[in-house]
């Protein structure tokens, strides 16, 4: 309580004395822990390699430039695969994410005691594992190649999309739903008229956002053999073909810039 009486006049401070002291103590402990950790890390660092870093970086830079431009003829197909992995993966994920989102949202779930926990479990479990690890698992199951990449991206994206969509469903204006219900509409009609129009912008936003992320993620899937441009990246790295690596990085950059541009345009058009 910051209002105090002093000699008959009311004085106001932002915090009481004990609150200020507590804040001071918290800041002090925080700083002490930071300094201590800094020291520990510095003890176990091999400083020789760190001091050496600029020279090595410069060495790699000179080897990697100029990029081997003629190698681009071999990259068309892999980058196309990468874009396909991302796009197909996102589409498949959305097909699964929408029903799961409706089952997970508190206001649309058929049963809050049975169905909702299952839907939430699916969301958490698919979200918690990185797509690279999904790809490793899937390569063991369905063999290496583009399909493993598509499925890995799809599984990883289900939880992400479902979570954002179900949050959008829970935030809808309930009176619009009431109004549609009051006309005598069926359960499905209420969904199509009362809920879907309200979540459409959120859904489109989530879809392009996830597609954007998936393009980045699918560029590395090839590192473990799940198709796409990562395959070329990994083989070039293995033979220390730095001019090829730099060209691949440029191509990935171009793809990501393109996806940013597309998703920005789509979002503009919808909202």
């Amino acid at each position: 309580m910051p209002v105090l009486e002093q000699n008959g006049t009311k004085v106001w401070h932002r915090r009481t004395r004990s609150e200020s002291l507590t804040r001071w103590a918290v800041w002090l402990t925080g700083t002490a822990i930071f300094v201590y950790c800094w020291q520990k890390i510095s003890e176990v660092t091999t400083w020789f390699f760190v001091w050496d870093a600029p020279r090595i970086a410069e060495d790699i830079w000179t080897r990697a430039t100029p990029p081997r431009w003629e190698y681009i003829t071999q990259l068309g197909r892999p980058i196309w695969d990468t874009l396909n992995i991302a796009t197909l993966g996102t589409l498949i994920a959305l097909c699964f994410a929408v029903p799961i989102a409706f089952m997970a949202a508190r206001n649309t779930t058929p049963s809050a005691t049975f169905v909702r926990p299952i839907a939430l479990l699916i969301i958490v479990s698919t979200r918690s594992i990185n797509s690279l690890i999904w790809a490793l698992l899937l390569i063991a199951v369905i063999g290496p190649g583009v399909l493993a990449g598509v499925v890995a991206i799809a599984i990883r994206s289900i939880g992400f999309c479902a979570k954002l969509v179900y949050e959008a469903i829970e935030e809808i204006d309930q009176t619009q739903v009431e109004a549609i219900t009051a006309t005598g509409a069926s359960r499905w009609q209420v969904m199509a008229y009362g809920i879907v129009p309200q979540i459409a912008p959120a859904f489109a936003g989530v879809a392009v956002f996830r597609w954007d992320i998936n393009i980045r993620e699918s560029t590395v899937l090839g590192l473990v053999g799940a198709g796409g441009i990562g395959l070329q990246l990994s083989s070039s790295l293995n033979v220390l073909a730095w001019p090829q690596v730099s060209l691949i990085l440029l191509v990935i950059l171009a793809a990501v810039v393109l996806s940013e541009w597309v998703s920005a345009k789509v979002r503009e058009a919808i909202i």
Binding site: T175, Q176, A179, Y193, Q198
Partner: peptide, 12 residues
């Protein structure tokens, strides 16, 4: 039924 805040589906 007629509502206080109109309860139209805004995006339709």
């Amino acid at each position: 039924m007629i509502f206080q805040e109109y309860a139209l589906v805004e995006r339709l």
